[in-house]
Design a protein around this nucleic acid. Structure first.
Length: 754
DNA sequence: AAAAAAT
């Protein structure tokens, strides 16, 4: 029975799929789960047995740690406290209890002047293993935030064990190391971005911020006015907005700058007010964030929603409809002086140069020492560009839109400052039992939500905060139990989150930060509505952070309603030319498809195959299996247990081939996937970018092969053009050398660069 | 078409 899988899952699975009770071994616990029954149809008989068992043992159960109404897991618990001691207890025991104590002492220390000398404190409580990740990754931090790798996944319990390791020296030295190692080839930011430096106007701000951060009414109780002097927002904003002499930048392009852009001004102006006023007034935006002047806000938002009129580059790439279009220095941008912002179609962003980031540390950015140390333990010794850009803005309390390519560190970019903000908002407060969450992070898939939690949890835990995952496909019991107990940060998928809200089990009214990962995807049809409803449940004026590798104007609907004066960031030099991924398109005969796929997949490395439908994904996996190539599938028709298990099989290397639908296209990370095969070509260029982003990570080389038939060539050409990818089209037959070549030796990164 | 709640 599947039960046998558990041993292996012991560690990885615990981490990967904490809800799934890898640890649950006690008789009645299993029953509880069975009864909770969201338990998927995989083993109906088990559920039945569980019910029977429950009935039998219920009466006597009390003495045996049985909760009288464990039905209350779902059901308004008659004894909430009890509910927590049941199943959740096991899970909380070691690690969470430790965390709690830790939190307590942190709080105590915090109350006696925490900001001043946090460092010594950190040393003893550093929760994560030191050089662990750093070493493996050769100092490159590409993956670290996207997905704590396997080792990492080993649940908090394990990490605690590392606690005493001294990696204090990790901080600085490591950064230096890394600098040395940082790939200077394609993956490197440094080489391609000319020597543009972080704008001075930007930097000073950060220092200021250290002293007086939250621009918005973020809760900051108990913070000595001395440390972070209270400031009138108006004053603050105004100062930042106008007192700087700089070239205009998107996110803070002040009114004053506007006149300079003669070409766009007039039309923009007429349009701008419309967006704003309507949106803001109707939702009381004014009240919620009185600090931002109306006019100011308007202009900030405008770039996102305005169209491209007057932009020459549009004509050149008519199909390109987004912000990405000019992510690399476009001709249009050339007329701007060095150091000036690149002007983007439809959405202007402050373009961050990686070189600017050299020498900047996480603590420079405003993160506390505990968090900084934890990040170092995760392999993030110093910030990536996108992190350096967005962390200060997030700490400041601003709404942020950020685009950074896959694996560029987005999770930490929002996660670390989010934790810091939540911590600040609770400084000195008691962490009450049953407190409602202060922050929520939404992701489009369960796997991604889990992965995000794997990164955020250690950071949160390092400062005594708790996270919980709220996603579907698993029993609610534990999730509700955790909520009852009280968590600070919720990470989940829209469906279950909304479900629990409607059931009154999740209260977001105190939620002051909301993050949308893969934000553009979350704005697609079918996703937006629930997301909007959820966001409306968050505290009025809550801070919103939108991140994605392909962030574009698709998020306009949300921006208009929910964001105020957003800072917009992206990383310069992130074009496909700087990628370590080799793309190619095989034009094939349909009748050869199955066999070609099999031969493509018959190789040594890990291969991820994308199929358009669930059925086809299953079919292919089966086909490969039959051909003697162990393969599993990942798609929405599988129950969550299988999804988790199959993905884990690939990560662990038990199989080398995973056939997935687009559920696996975004965000999920598996090390060492060196070939991505698109059995079905995607319809959108964004999908192409995300799918191909599953390989070529950490500066490694990777290949993406897309199979199409002759009829599709034109569409594919257009798509690649939009994605700004150059890929040769090659006719391929089953016995072609091409296939051999693809499945054979992978080109070195060096070869790709030259 | 897929994904996201559970039924």
């Amino acid at each position: 029975m599947p039960k046998n899988k558990k041993p292996r899952g012991g560690r990885p699975a615990a981490n990967f799929e904490p809800r799934y009770g890898a640890k649950k071994t006690s008789f009645h616990d299993r029953h509880t789960t069975g009864r909770d029954s969201a338990r998927d149809g995989a083993r109906p008989e088990r559920g039945a047995r569980a019910d029977a068992g429950e009935r039998r043992s219920a009466p006597a159960a009390g003495g045996y740690d049985r909760r009288p109404g464990s039905r209350s897991a779902n059901h308004r618990g008659y004894r909430p406290a009890e509910a927590e001691t049941g199943a959740p207890k096991q899970r909380w025991n070691a690690q969470e209890r430790a965390g709690r104590d830790e939190a307590r002492s942190i709080r105590n220390r915090a109350e006696s002047g925490r900001r001043e000398a946090p460092h010594h404190r950190g040393d003893e409580r550093r929760p994560t293993g030191p050089g662990t990740y750093r070493d493996e990754r050769g100092g490159q931090r590409f993956d670290r935030d996207e997905r704590p790798r396997r080792d990492d996944r080993g649940a908090g319990t394990q990490r605690q064990g590392f606690r005493d390791n001294d990696h204090r020296d990790g901080g600085r030295p490591v950064r230096d190391d890394r600098r040395g190692q940082r790939p200077t080839g394609p993956g490197s930011y440094r080489d391609e971005r000319g020597g543009q430096r972080f704008d001075r106007d930007e930097r000073p701000r950060r220092d200021d911020r250290g002293a007086a951060p939250q621009g918005r009414g973020y809760d900051r109780p108990n913070r000595g006015g001395a440390e972070r002097p209270e400031r009138s927002y108006d004053a603050d904003r105004a100062r930042r907005a106008f007192d700087r002499d700089r070239t205009q930048r998107s996110f803070d392009a002040p009114r004053d700058d506007r006149p300079r852009r003669d070409d766009r001004t007039s039309s923009d102006r007429t349009e701008r007010p419309r967006y704003d006023r309507d949106a803001r007034d109707s939702r009381g935006g004014e009240r919620s964030r009185p600090s931002t002047g109306g006019a100011y806000r308007t202009e900030r938002v405008r770039p996102l929603t305005s169209d491209t009129r007057g932009r020459p580059s549009r004509n050149e790439r008519p199909s390109r409809n987004d912000w990405n279009a000019t992510s690399r220095p476009a001709p249009a941008a050339a007329k701007f002086e060095p150091g000036a912002d690149v002007v983007h179609e439809r959405l202007e962003a402050k373009s961050v140069e990686a070189v600017e980031v050299d020498g900047v540390s996480f603590s420079d950015l405003g993160l506390g020492s505990n968090i900084v140390e934890t990040l170092a333990g995760l392999g993030a010794a110093s910030p990536f560009a996108i992190q350096a850009a967005s962390i200060p803005a997030v700490l400041e309390g601003r709404d942020v839109l950020a685009r950074g390519r896959t694996g560029s560190g987005k999770t930490i970019a929002f996660g670390a400052p989010l934790v810091e903000n939540v911590l600040k908002s609770q400084a000195g407060k008691r962490r009450e039992f049953g407190r409602s969450p202060r922050a929520i992070i939404l992701a489009p898939t369960r796997e991604l939500a889990l992965q995000i939690d794997r990164t955020i949890q250690p950071i949160a835990r390092s400062v005594g905060l708790f996270t919980t995952q709220i996603y579907g496909g698993v029993p609610q019991g534990r999730q509700v139990g955790a909520l009852k107990k009280g968590v600070d940060i919720v990470i989940g998928t829209p469906g279950r989150v909304e479900d629990l809200i409607n059931q009154g089990k999740l209260d977001l009214s105190d939620c002051r930060i909301a993050v949308l990962d893969e934000a553009d995807h979350m704005c697609e049809l079918g996703f937006v509505e629930p997301v909007q409803r959820i966001l409306r449940h968050t505290a009025e004026g809550s801070q919103k952070l939108l991140f994605s590798a392909t962030l574009d104007r698709e998020v306009a609907a949300l921006v208009d309603e929910f964001l105020i004066d957003p800072a917009v960031f992206e990383v310069a030099g992130e074009d496909q030319g700087s990628s370590t991924i080799e793309h190619r398109v095989l034009v094939i005969e349909h009748r050869d498809k199955a066999d070609i796929l099999t031969s493509l997949v018959d190789r040594a490395g890990k291969t991820l195959v994308f199929a358009r439908t669930r059925a086809y994904a299953d079919m292919l996996a089966e086909q490969f299996d039959d051909a003697g190539i162990p393969a599993v599938s990942l798609h929405g028709d599988l129950n969550q247990a299988k999804r988790t298990r199959n993905l884990e099989r690939l990560t662990s290397g038990r199989v080398n081939v995973l056939v997935a639908t687009d559920v696996a296209a975004r965000g999920i990370h598996v090390d060492d996937i060196d070939l991505v095969v698109q059995a079905d070509a995607p319809d959108e260029y964004k999908t192409y970018l995300h799918r191909s982003g599953r390989t070529g990570r950490a500066g490694r080389s990777g290949r993406v092969v897309t199979l199409i038939t002759r009829q599709r060539q034109r569409r594919m050409t257009e798509l690649l053009d939009r994605a700004e990818i150059d890929a040769p089209f090659e006719n391929a037959r089953l016995d072609d050398d091409i296939i051999e070549e693809i499945t054979g030796r992978m080109p070195t990164a060096a070869a790709l660069t030259s």
